[in-house]
Design a protein around this nucleic acid. Structure first.
Lengths: 205, 205
DNA sequence: ACAGAGTTTAACCAATTAGTTAATCCAAAT
DNA sequence: ATTTGGATTAACTAATTGGTTAAACTCTGT
């Protein structure tokens, strides 16, 4: 997976990400990460001091890959419709390329929620833009939604769930066919946006 | 948490469940579980032989609590509407009482998907009843849904997401107020059923 | 050629931890 | 009262594992 151009630090991050995602913080072994990166174990400590600091670095690299892109989609000068289309399709594109990120983030959500919350609050305007954007919902312009938080939970739930539950969902409903599940995932953007459209524009029909 | 009526085996399961949910399989310590159950550590091995077998027992106890109840709601002789109302409200009731179950199940989904899939397939008629029930969707009676799997993913995602993401969601959108989030969760059943109704009965409006 | 800094390595250490053992306790049966 | 067998305990073991150390290597500038 890592090519020869990568320096040691990048090789470690790449390898550690794979192992941490697969085994979790506690389940991962420093030796295994070193093997994966094809370096000596002591180098891990040379570069990152401790297992926990390495984990933090890996995690930060991961969300630093996600949040700026996501944040740029949430542009309060655009309409909710436009933003939704942008976000949902971005989400699905990103998740198809990074299918293991959700597990990783959920691990951190439960283990260090305060730290993660602080990080997200630091993303400039991220939260305030969301609030700005979901004002129409509070004003009743979307059917069935009482608070904008319900709207957010609905959308995120629909986006993320198929990735989180893939191993079991693919087995139970797709005869464990990778290709069929990939096809299923690629349809999600359209499906979710359709749900959204049905709810937000009742009179259009 | 455990009362005096519980025998040792039950005390262990109760304690182990708490610790495993909090720390995961790898993060949990046998000593910590023993302390929580107020018994000697060797008793854990006396009753369950190994950490992994204990984890299996705890996990099985958990899903054995969930699946029969869930399965009974999926009655193919009822209409999709009725079943949906039953399932969504059951789901939310169950999750409010067992808010940590989702994490627990998702851990197993990724660590031992085949084992879990086998277990679910063994729940008699569970899958076939779902397929029977979602036939109307395949036949186009619900707008925006191409395959019934999308429908299932949408509903489950909306149900489960707020529990999975609680630590971060509560902090970012509810000023970390437990009560407000509980209130939010209690509204989910109605919200989700409304979404479902809007989608399935377009002409009713 | 050499010095020096950063990088890499093998060997080692201390602590933790799952699992074992052998002795003891206790209650029911004889 | 004694036996018996499961339940419980303290002490112990073997192996794992995160982290350290000191030596060796490599590259760059002089």
């Amino acid at each position: 997976m890592q090519n020869k151009e990568q320096n040691t630090e990048e090789k470690i991050i790449t390898a550690a990400k794979e192992i941490f995602i697969e085994k979790g913080l506690q389940g991962a072994r420093m030796q295994e990460i070193a093997d994966q990166a094809k370096i000596n174990k002591a180098l891990l400590h040379y570069y990152f001091r401790s297992k926990e600091k390495l984990f933090d670095a890996v995690f930060e690299a991961s969300i630093n890959d996600l949040f700026p892109k996501l944040s740029s989609k949430i542009d309060p000068s655009k309409s909710l419709d436009e933003v939704m289309a942008g976000i949902v399709s971005f989400y699905n594109k990103f998740l198809i390329e990074n299918p293991f990120i959700p597990q990783f983030i959920f691990h951190e959500i439960w283990q260090h929620p305060e730290k993660l919350a602080r990080f997200i609050r630091e993303q400039n305007n991220f939260i305030s833009n969301i609030n700005e954007l979901t004002k129409p919902i509070e004003l009743g312009e979307i059917k069935t939604e009482y608070k904008s938080q319900h709207f957010i939970a609905n959308i995120l739930g629909m986006c993320i769930f198929p990735y989180l539950s893939r191993p079991i969902f693919q087995r139970l409903f797709f005869e464990n066919q990778e290709d069929d599940y990939d096809q299923f995932l690629s349809e999600r953007t359209e499906v979710i946006l359709n749900v959204f459209n049905q709810l937000s524009k009742p009179e259009k029909k």
